[in-house]
Structures are given as structure tokens and as C-alpha cells.
């Protein structure tokens, strides 16, 4: 039986974990295996973890703007892979304009602060299915 595996992490010095922990537990409660990478990640460490863990989706939680600089770096690392792992981003600081830019560099989904659990689960399931 295939279980969905998701890597959840926060980039740089951002240390706001409320959303990341909340989402991780929510995904766990919906039967997913969450590899929780916590804070202080860089694109390189997340990329490496994603490969070692063979995850279906990488989820980035962001409550500072560092992600805007780090995500292009992460997407570039992933793009060089045969089967790039899809990346999703969530966080209250993500504005509509940021979301557009993220989508433009290949981020698969962006969840604002109003996103419901159902939306997040469905979108991760769909991405994992590909």
C-alpha cells in the first residue's frame, strides 16, 4: 500500500512553527507520513532530505520573506532532477503577487492563510498521485 510522504520544512532563520506544526499534524491525521524538517533549512538541505526520504511533495511554511529568495534556488535544484518533486508553499505573509511569482517559477500550489484543510489535503493528494 502506498502511503503519501510529505516533507515539511521552514527556510532560513524563520522560526514561526505554529502553522508548520499544525499542518504536519493535520496531514498525519489524514493518514500521511510527514517528515518534519523543522527550522533552519536551506534549499540544499531540503533538496537533499527530499531525495533521501523519497517524498511525494515538499511543503514550505513561511512567515518571513526569506522564502522569496530561497525558493528560486530550491526550484532550480529540483529542476535538474529527472522527476522533480512538487513544491507547495503556505503562509500568511504570502501575498497574491508573491503567489503569482511562485507559480511562475514552478511552485505547484500556494496556500494563503485562509486555505482550508480540505483544500490542502486534496491538492497534496493530487500532486502525490502524479
Amino acid at each position: 500500500m502506498k502511503n503519501i510522504r510529505v516533507l515539511i520544512g521552514i527556510l532560513g532563520m524563520d522560526q514561526h512553527e505554529v502553522a508548520a506544526v499544525g499542518i504536519a499534524k493535520m496531514l498525519r491525521d489524514h493518514g500521511m507520513e510527514v517528515i518534519y524538517a523543522g527550522c533552519f533549512n536551506t534549499p540544499e538541505t531540503l533538496f537533499q532530505s527530499a531525495i533521501e526520504e523519497d517524498v511525494d511533495v515538499i511543503g514550505i511554511s513561511s512567515h518571513s520573506w526569506e522564502y522569496l529568495y530561497y525558493l528560486p534556488e530550491l526550484m532550480e535544484l529540483l529542476a535538474a532532477e529527472e522527476e522533480p518533486v512538487p513544491v507547495v508553499v503556505g503562509g500568511s505573509v504570502v501575498t497574491a503577487k508573491d503567489a503569482q511569482e511562485l507559480t511562475a517559477i514552478g511552485v505547484a500550489a500556494v496556500y494563503g492563510s485562509g486555505a482550508s484543510d480540505g483544500e490542502i489535503i486534496d491538492s497534496i493528494k493530487e500532486l502525490a498521485d502524479r
Partner: peptide, 18 residues
């Protein structure tokens, strides 16, 4: 800022974007 709050100087590599 978050590096300062975490006792890190601004020239630390992890601090660069924040």
C-alpha cells in the same frame, strides 16, 4: 531581527536574506 534574536551575527551565511 531573527539572526540577532538567535545570537547570530549578520555575516553568518544563514542570515543573508533576513
Amino acid at each position: 531581527d531573527s539572526p540577532t534574536m538567535s545570537l547570530m551575527d549578520p555575516d553568518h551565511p544563514l542570515a543573508k536574506y533576513v
